[in-house]
């Protein structure tokens, strides 16, 4: 079941979901919570060397995404004037808000785009929308400009939305966690 705005507010108030900084009243929709863009992004470099065939394989033993991303992308801090997503460009970003979904809360979430950006050709995630029960931290976004327009993004803008869903039961790790520290009778 998808949570409505009133239910989202209730679970935040009860501590079942943690959002920092706390969302303002205008961040809610009927069944969603809007999140905003942080000022840190990561811009992939275009790697083009004639005659050299380069590929990346996450399944390779010892593969380090961290080393790869640091070698082939550059950190960039978006100023007040924003950052322009060129057509067919791809950059990593994060939400300004940090989220915690404790496993005991029996909630998971999906990060989804905003139609205000989608209609310009901007996707904010690439087929990985699930925020698992137990997640904590800012949400990484994968910006892809599928359109033909140059689109500017600015820190603090509403950039994505969370849809909260109640899970059927508690995940294994949450179930075991409930009994940690309890004495055996």
């Amino acid at each position: 079941m998808v949570l409505t705005d009133r239910e989202i507010q209730a679970v935040i108030q009860s501590g079942q979901i943690v959002v920092e900084p706390a969302p303002t009243e205008d961040a809610y929709g009927p069944t969603n919570l809007d999140l905003t863009l942080d000022n840190n992004i990561r811009v992939w470099r275009e790697v083009k060397v004639i005659g050299v065939d380069q590929s990346v394989c996450p399944a390779a033993p010892g593969y380090s995404y961290n080393e790869f991303v640091k070698q082939y992308s550059d950190p960039h801090e978006i100023g007040a004037d924003g950052y322009v997503l060129e057509p067919r460009s791809f950059v990593l970003g994060w939400t300004a808000e940090s989220i915690e979904l404790p496993t005991f809360a029996r909630l998971a979430a999906r990060v989804e785009g905003k139609s205000s950006l989608a209609r310009l050709g901007i996707g904010v995630h690439v087929t990985a929308p699930t925020i698992q029960a137990g997640f904590r931290g800012p949400i990484q976004l994968e910006f892809c400009n599928h359109g033909t327009l140059r689109v500017k993004i600015v820190p603090g803008m509403k950039v994505c939305q969370l849809i909260f869903e109640q899970t059927l039961g508690t995940a294994e790790k949450g179930y075991k966690g409930q009994f940690l520290g309890q004495a055996k009778n």
Binding site: Y65, N66, S98, T103, G134, R136, G137, E172, K173, G174, K176, G177
Partner: peptide, 17 residues
Amino acid sequence: SVSVKDIADDKLIASEI
């Protein structure tokens, strides 16, 4: 890649299955 809150004393906080 994890939240800084998932690291304590250079160890990874995780769940036993």
